[in-house]
């Protein structure tokens, strides 16, 4: 398991490739990858940038707990979770969840579950900078959005 926080832009595909170099790919029939990027719109408003606040100390530990609980539930061979913190610009990657398993259903279901739990349990908060320069806190992550 690898859980990482980045305060600068990161390339999710490079992280996946890097990890695969050390994995026995001949035994891993499935990889499920989710990459979440910052949009330049939200709730009908143009968004210029985002600040991702987190809880130093707790956030990484929470991500590790979420991954460990997924590893206990599904037969997974590797997991990679990466999340941005700090100032983010549109099109930059916010989150990567990558899960390797022998079989597709474990990989797919674990990836989806880890992502949902990151969105609803890990202590991150988004503050948006709008086109008029005003800022607003994102109030909630609703299911499916």
């Amino acid at each position: 398991m690898a859980v990482r926080l980045f305060s600068e832009p990161f390339d999710p595909w490079a992280l996946v490739r890097e990890r695969e170099r050390e994995l026995p790919l001949e035994k891993l029939g499935a990889i499920s990858v989710f990459v979440g990027r910052m949009r330049d719109f939200n709730d009908d408003r143009a968004v210029q940038g985002l600040f991702l606040e987190h809880y130093p100390g707790m956030t990484k530990r929470e991500l590790e707990r979420i991954v460990m609980e997924a590893e206990a539930r599904w037969p997974l061979d590797a997991c990679e979770v990466a999340h941005r913190v700090g100032a983010v610009n549109p099109s930059e990657t916010l989150v990567l969840v990558a899960v390797w398993s022998a079989h597709r259903i474990a990989a797919r279901d674990a990836c989806a579950e880890i992502l949902e739990r990151v969105k609803h349990e890990a202590p991150f908060w988004k503050r948006e900078r709008l086109e008029d320069g005003n800022e607003r806190w994102v109030e909630t992550n609703t299911p499916g959005s």
Partner: peptide, 9 residues
């Protein structure tokens, strides 16, 4: 720690 609903991901 007290905080509002989380909005990461």
């Amino acid at each position: 720690a007290f905080f509002p609903p989380v909005t990461g991901g």
